[in-house]
Design a protein around this nucleic acid. Structure first.
Lengths: 161, 161
DNA sequence: TTTACTGCAAAGGGTTTGCAACATG
DNA sequence: CATGTTGCAAACCCTTTGCAGTAAA
């Protein structure tokens, strides 16, 4: 199983690729959607490559057609299997949702190469932040879906170029 | 002067529109760029409307041509006068930078109408978050430009529709 | 008066969609 | 078999760019 840089498993112990696929299938079923070969390939690519652009997904699996991949991602997003990551502004990136991976995390967004690295914060910081954000939302009568904490900058490879 | 919902002035006391324009002109001058009528109009629109899309800027000032506005925003962004906000995925949004407004803040991003509301967090939360993020970046040898903390959800107007 | 900026219109490029063929339950 | 899914190619739409005319230092 893939391990994250912090030593935190991307998936909790016992979660393997099959579990992810089963969970994805179950989530699609709720929306009366089939877990087809293409959709499985897309999930497989994300499982294998982490946060990826469409181009990276297509490149990882030449069996996938571009338009179908876009359509698969729409369905997978609606079902809560994948999540669209907003980065700087070029290509869209997708990753498996926390509901699938069971792992809350944030992103280091490289403005050089666009790469995204997952990081997690100490749980006490996360908790305090959640409270402060909830309070801010309440003040503005804002209904929160999720929060987004990103660091924008340059990754190790791009910084010395 | 425009006041923020939290009762925190968007600009520190004594800052008025003229100060913003002077500061913008100074920042452009560093890059040998002129603070022209168009660029002033764009800054004026952002000053008046807050985080805005190109369409909103054009709508606010019918004297502005679309292509010129795009070009103005590129120059203003390079000079550190405006900042591109990445939201869900439709149109780009722009706001005046914190260097101009002197006010660190975060965003409530409405996935219904795309509206962006500025909020600020208690300084102790902000400080603790900064430390945790700096530590995460260090672990990954990541060079941070800035952090981004957003709440994604539905604004007051969009929630009951 | 030189250099940078503007505006129109056309091109670019990631994403979406129409439609006929296909596969899955 | 009926319905949902796929793939090709064309359409979309926000954004960028070429170029001739204009304004700013």
């Amino acid at each position: 199983m893939a391990l994250e840089g912090d030593g935190i498993p991307l998936l909790s112990a016992g979660f393997d690729d099959d579990d992810v696929h089963q969970l994805a299938a179950a989530k699609l079923q709720v929306f009366s959607q089939r877990y087809t070969r293409n959709r499985r390939l897309v999930v497989g690519a994300l499982l294998h490559c982490g946060p990826s652009t469409i181009a990276e997904i297509l490149n990882h699996d030449h069996a996938l057609a571009q338009s179908s991949t876009y359509r698969s991602l729409v369905v997978l997003e609606e079902a809560g299997v994948v999540h669209r990551i907003v980065t700087t502004d070029d290509h869209a990136r997708f990753e498996l949702t926390e509901e699938i991976t069971g792992h809350h995390h944030h992103h280091l967004v490289c403005r050089g190469c666009g790469a995204i690295t997952d990081v997690s914060l100490p749980s006490d910081v996360e908790r305090q932040l959640d409270q402060a954000l909830a309070e801010a939302a309440r003040r503005h009568r804002f209904t929160t879906d999720h929060h987004r904490v990103d660091l924008v900058g340059l990754c190790e490879n791009c910084v010395d170029r």
